[in-house]
Each structure stands twice: as C-alpha cells, then as structure tokens.
Design a binder for these strands. Structure first.
Length: 439
DNA sequence: CTAGGGTTAG
C-alpha cells in the first residue's frame, strides 16, 4: 500500500543502478573520429582548406567567385529581412543559417544574426529565442549568451523561456559542462524558477554525457521542486537506454512511465523499434508494430526508416526496398533519411536505373537537404557517360553548386532552368536555391 | 523554450 515512500527518484535509482550508463559505450560520435585524426599530425593544414575533395586545385579565381557569391546572398538575405513576413518565417532563417554553418562561415552567421537587432522584433522574447537557438545550432552558444545578457537593454522581456533557449543553445552545441554551469548559477541569480523544460533540457544534456549520477540528481531536484516528469522526460530516457541497447532497463522505465499514467506515444515506440532493428531483431520490431496498432498508434516514417536502417546495415537491398514500398503503400511520405539510406544502397548494388528513379522521386518531393545522397548516382552516371541524365538530375534538383565538378558544362547554363521560374518570391527562391525544410 | 531517426569519404 504504502508506495508513498517510493519516489520516482528512488525507483529510477534502482533501475539506473542496474545499468550504469556511463560504462556503456554509446554509438560512435564523429567528434571521436575527428580526434583520432588529430593524433595523426602529418598534415595539419589540410583541415583548414576544406576543399570538396575532387579537383585538387581550388584556384583563387574560384575562391573569389565563391566569396562574392556569398556576399551577394548575405546582402540579399538582409534585404529580405526588411519584410516582416520574411522575418516571421522561421524556416527561411534556419535554412540560410544552416548553409552558412555547413560552410563554416561563423563570422557571417554572427553578422546576419546581429543584423536582426535593427528590427522591432528584437523586443519580442520569442524572436530573441529564435536567434539564440540559431546560434546554438551553429555551435556558437557564447554568442547566444551575450544576446541573452543584452536582452534587458534591448527592452526585451526575459523569462525562464529565454533562459531555457540559452540552455538549449549550449546543449545543442555539445557544451554540456557549460550548460550545467549556467543551469546552476543563472536562474537563481536572475530570480527565475526552472520549469519542466529546464529540467528536460538538462536531462537531455546529461544523457549525452552519459552521466547517470547527474541525471538522477536532476530528477531528484525536479521532484523536490514539485514538478512532475512528463512525456518528454521519459521519452528522453527511453531513447537513451534503447540507443545503448539497455532493453531491460529501458522496459522498466517504460513501465514506470505507464504507472505515472503517461501513455507511450509514437516516439516512445519508435525509440524501442530503433533499438530492436539496430540489433537485427526484425521480428520483434514487427511484433512491436502490431502492439502499436493495437494501442491505436500508427507507425510513421520514422518507424519504417528504422527497418530500412537495419537492413541497410546488412546491405539487404531487397528487404530495404520492401519496407520502402510498404511505407508508400501506407501513404507515408519518405523523408531525407529514407532517401539518404536508400539511394546510395541501391546504387551500390548496381541498380542504377532504380537509383535514378528514386532520386527523381526525391527531387519531385523536394527532399534536397542532403545533396550528398545523390553523389553515387551522379558519379555513376558520369562514369558511364550518361551525362545528359546526370545533368538533368542536377538541374532538376538545383544541385549545381554541389556537382559542378562532375559536370563542368553546368556553368554555361547557369541561367534559370526553364522548369521553375519565379514561383513565389524571387528573392526567397534564389536564397534557398537547393533547399528543403524537412529537418 | 524541452524528446527522433541518418550523414562523411580516399
């Protein structure tokens, strides 16, 4: 009867003790791969001039062209910002900033974001939050912090919401220790009360770090302050445990969640499905899909992608395609992950025609955020002398900037392809060139 | 403002 004494903290403590996360290796991160490279200090300069890796000579002329190109785009973006509706369109900002981030143009990012202070919007907390998050996605949390500090003088209201955004900026930049530092110091200093979002953000950070002890301490604090862990709290934990193949412990958290009257949702299920398919337990995955349906939850594109991912690992094209076909049968929209998985695999298996077909479908659906997925197809087409087809794909997908080296003639036809003249606003169309907003 | 999948090779 007396479950009174068994707080959430206590119960999780039992689960966690059974599975000290910190001792389990998480899937490899690219940062680790990089650091290995650093050991190999044979060529230290090669990193800075991150050429695309094809033509060895990146002539000065090309560099120049590129940078003036960029300057023009930045100017154009700033001009677009004059329009209120443009400023309110989040996707346009994140897409543009993502481009800059991929090109490692951090000073340009700062320039563009600083520019936003010119507008009245800067008095709106939500607008400032967006900018802080954009800094965070770009790995520039110090800039977000500076903006946070400036909010009062910008006449912008500053609540726990913007603090949470600052915290996210640190976490998204993988600066977990710094996140912890501001979490411990700032709210108190500013007279703010952490809310469930604050705690969930910290739990996410500590999952990333793999520190079970610290997760527990956050949970304890959450409870102590009378805040109930919610769906997001539990799904964050579930994702982490299943990602580390800790099924037994994950399942116990699952039960704990249900005992709190939180009904597992599509994300809970997908976390588990991913864990299963990554371990080639496809039959179990299928069973779980049946359970989902019984519970009234329809599998979505993420669910299917989990299977495609699993089979891709085995280079099992047949099964991968089977799941892909079923996904479409169910009227689910394949996304960039689907195509990123599928197109290179199909290509590798020598099914060039099928790869072309799927590529064209991706382009038709405007799934263009990861242009590298088309690389094997373009390479293959070019090496087989099918220049015309390759050119058509590149043009249809507006991928010229990525594949110019394969198809030098593209520069000649830099005009607009007759296919899509100014659809909506010419400014926006040009800025986004080959853009997608699916992630 | 907080929870997802994948990606990058010579």
């Amino acid at each position: 009867m007396s479950k009174v004494g068994s707080s959430l903290y206590t119960r999780l403590h039992g689960i966690f003790k059974a599975a000290p996360i910190a001792t389990v290796k998480p899937p490899k991160f690219k940062s680790q791969i990089k650091s290995k490279k650093l050991v190999n200090k044979a060529k230290e300069s090669s990193a800075s001039s991150a050429s695309v890796g094809d033509g060895v000579e990146s002539s000065n002329v090309a560099e120049k062209t590129k940078s003036t190109d960029l300057t023009k785009k930045v100017e154009k973006f700033k001009r677009s910002c004059e329009t209120e509706s443009f400023r309110q369109t989040h996707g346009l900002y994140s897409a543009f900033i993502r481009r800059l981030r991929e090109a490692k143009k951090f000073s340009v990012i700062d320039e563009v974001l600083q520019h936003q202070k010119k507008y009245e919007d800067i008095k709106s907390e939500n607008f400032v939050i967006r900018i802080m998050l954009l800094y965070g996605y770009s790995g520039m949390p110090e800039h977000a912090h500076k903006l946070f500090d400036e909010m009062p003088e910008l006449n912008c209201e500053r609540t726990i919401k913007s603090f949470n955004a600052l915290l996210s900026a640190y976490v998204n930049s993988r600066k977990v220790d710094e996140a912890m530092k501001v979490f411990k110091e700032l709210p108190e200093k500013l007279g703010m009360t952490p809310d469930i979002v604050t705690y969930n953000t910290m739990i996410k950070a500590l999952c990333r770090k793999g520190s079970m002890e610290e997760i527990l301490s956050i949970l304890e604090e959450t409870e102590k302050n009378g805040i109930e862990p919610d769906m997001i709290t539990f799904n964050t934990l579930l994702e982490e445990f299943y990602r580390r193949d800790l099924f037994a412990e994950g399942d116990r958290i699952w039960d704990l969640m249900k005992s709190k009257n939180l009904v597992p949702n599509i994300r809970s299920y997908n976390s588990r499905v991913r864990g299963l398919t990554r371990n080639k337990k496809f039959a179990d995955g299928i069973d779980l899909m049946d359970v989902m349906r019984t519970e009234g939850i329809s599998p979505d594109a993420h669910t299917y992608n989990a299977f495609i991912t699993g089979y891709r690992g085995d280079e099992n094209l047949e099964e991968a395609l089977k799941w892909y076909d079923e996904m479409k049968e169910k009227r689910l929209i394949p996304d960039s992950v689907t195509y990123c998985l599928l197109i290179p695999l199909v290509c590798k298996k020598g099914e060039l025609d099928r790869a072309v077909e799927i590529s064209e479908e991706a382009i038709r659906r405007k799934v263009l955020s990861r242009p590298n997925m088309f690389r094997p197809v373009i390479e293959r087409l070019v090496s087989e002398g099918k220049i015309e087809k390759a050119t058509q794909i590149v043009k249809d997908g507006k991928l010229q900037s990525y594949f110019r080296s394969y198809l030098p003639d593209l520069s000649a036809g830099k005009e607009k392809t007759s296919s899509s003249p100014a659809a909506s606003s010419p400014v926006e169309a040009d800025l986004l060139e080959d853009e997608e907003s699916d992630d």
